[in-house]
């Protein structure tokens, strides 16, 4: 059985009504804070430690064999809530010995860092594990153009990350040794 209980607010005592005891205790608190250790980080000299899973600047990575992993499926472009990503797809020509089995790669890949909101959806959606939000967080420039990262810059920032699957390398091996027709 639910019962409504009205709790009466206690009337303030005389000393409470003068506010003075409360003011005094407030002053005590602030005074004790005065001598506590400061938490400020002296930013440009000291850097915060970046936790695992931090979402910094989005970058494109290559696999340990130096192959570009992005195949321009454009899912990141689709999922990007702020429409910061723009991809022009292109194909890998058939005579490319190394990578023709992948068939597709981005011709251009641009991330507009003025639009990016660092949500990490692109990393989450990427089926090839080619886009990662890495540890960079400080990004500045003098013009709008400068802050649009193109493919070259994205790969430069991204570097190489370990790969668990080597999906396309396996495919190539299959092609060379497998049930070829």
């Amino acid at each position: 059985m639910i019962k409504t209980v009205v709790i009466e607010r206690k009337p303030l005592s005389l000393s409470e009504r003068t506010y003075l005891p409360q003011i005094a205790s407030g002053l005590k608190t602030t005074l004790s804070n005065l001598f506590k250790k400061k938490v400020t980080l002296q930013y440009p000299e000291q850097r915060p430690s970046i936790p695992r899973g931090y979402r910094g600047v989005p970058t494109l990575v290559k696999d340990p064999n130096g192959r570009e992993k992005c195949v321009s499926c454009q899912l990141c472009e689709f999922v990007c809530p702020s429409k910061a990503i723009r991809i022009t797809p292109g194909d890998i020509p058939e005579d490319d010995e190394e990578q023709s089995h992948v068939e597709k790669a981005p011709k251009e890949f641009e991330i507009d860092m003025l639009r990016c909101i660092y949500c990490g959806y692109c990393e989450e959606v990427c089926p090839e594990e080619a886009i990662f939000l890495q540890e960079d967080y400080s990004l500045s420039g003098y013009s709008r153009e400068e802050l649009v990262n193109d493919k070259e810059k994205l790969y430069e920032m991204g570097g190489t990350l370990p790969d668990k699957h080597f999906k396309w390398d396996k495919k190539k091996t299959e092609e060379e040794q497998g049930n070829a027709h």
């Binding site: 602030t30 804070n33 400061k38």
Partner: peptide, 10 residues
Amino acid sequence: KVCAWMQGRV
């Protein structure tokens, strides 16, 4: 300064 110190800053 005092404000900063009271708020844990420098």
